[in-house]
Design a protein around this nucleic acid. Structure first.
Lengths: 220, 220
DNA sequence: GATAGTTTCATACAACTGTTTGAAATGCAA
DNA sequence: TTGCATTTCAAACAGTTGTATGAAACTATC
């Protein structure tokens, strides 16, 4: 165990570099240079490059997921096992958006790293993301309890669209800013959260009987 | 000019391999083996690996964008310069979804390639995507004409959310299928399109005066 | 059918990658 | 201090990558 100093220096340097330059063109040599440690240290402490990336991503994911579940649990307890759908959705997308958006200069390295992880897709991260399903199921369950008259299909689509809006907004935040000439203020995180929650709520609660049946209607 | 045979053999092989295995682990040597041409042929005909990828992606993007604009133009002409918002949104997300979803076994190589391009992010493709803004502006314009009482901000957010739902559904189609135990049928493309259009329309038309002002409302 | 231009080919190149090695240094307990 | 385990280090390794080269094989024109 000893010092752990090298280990955390590597983690910090790697997170910083990946956040700034992406996974694509950051090599182990870049990382150890930034961390002022020897090249072999990475393999000694982490086993491999992929395991280093994985550890980085897992740490951050766990933090976000814990935050999500904390909000969810609090809401359900307060509502006697049933939380309003807006609050559930808020717990779902809030932590991620709050972690990844906001004024750039005060955006944490962790946040910038997570944005990278959501833009660039790299094998070790993809593997971990695939295990996120169990976590999402908990939200699906809460949503079902909140909207007992909605079918499972509608619940899952609502969940999918909520995540879609949150993640896409993060991924393409730069483009949206440019496209809208800065009119869409992505630094006002709570406004973004409110927008996503609002639309997702509509998707889940609107009396949309039409989408089930005649598919081609909207095309007309 | 001559035969062009080698050139198109490379393009076809590359698209197939990238679609199947992703950009990450397909090398030029894999491509030329699949195409039955010499290794040097890629650099001779395309200049570099990146230019090959770019050409592949540009070709498919242009096709999609043309399709989008064709639908949009037709709709606006029919409506005397002003199309219903649902139809505009349909023109925006329809071609992409139609190109990338649907029964897997009848999904074209081109479609699978475009899915890859949206999942794995690779430098030459990212560069091209950044130039897509002008194209999106045309849709923003049409949406503004369709909803003259909506502010620009609302238009852009609606556009953003529509693209978000479409792209995320494509990217995470596998996960959504697994999460929903197959209850969400992603092979019924027109149903998916209808869902996206329906939610995006709600986002754009609902009397949502609240999102502008008190940000923290949804959290309660 | 000679010639000029294009295209193909085998091969080599140069650079970079993550990983391993084995010895040196360090820390720590007895 | 001795001895043992952990940690660091420089160096090399093995593999792969995209790209360049220069000769050979074509193709078409005159």
């Amino acid at each position: 165990m000893a010092s752990d100093h090298t280990r955390s220096a590597i983690l910090a340097a790697a997170e910083r570099l990946y956040a700034d330059r992406g996974f694509g063109d950051v090599t182990l040599r870049d990382i150890v240079a930034e961390a002022n440690v020897n090249l072999a240290a990475v393999n000694y402490h982490f086993g491999s490059k992929d395991e280093l990336i994985a550890e980085l991503f897992v740490t951050r994911s766990i933090a976000t997921n814990r935050e999500r579940l904390r909000e969810l649990k609090a809401a359900e307890e307060q509502g006697g096992g049933r939380a309003p759908i807006e609050v559930i959705l808020h717990a779902l997308v809030g932590p991620t958006l709050r972690g990844c958006l906001g004024p750039e200069n005060q955006r944490s390295t962790a946040a910038r790293f997570m944005i990278r992880a959501s833009i660039e897709s790299v094998p070790p991260i993809r593997r971990i993301k695939n295990r996120e399903i169990d976590h999402l199921r908990k939200f699906a369950g809460a949503m079902r309890r909140s909207l007992p008259d909605r079918s499972d299909v509608e619940i899952y689509w609502g969940l999918n669209f909520a995540l879609a809006m949150a993640h896409h907004t993060i991924r393409e935040s730069e483009r949206l800013t440019k496209l809208s000439d800065g009119k869409c203020d992505l630094d006002d995180v709570e406004d973004v959260v409110a927008r996503v929650v609002s639309v997702a709520t509509m998707a889940l609660t609107a009396g949309r009987t039409e989408a089930k049946a005649p598919s081609r209607l909207a095309a007309r």
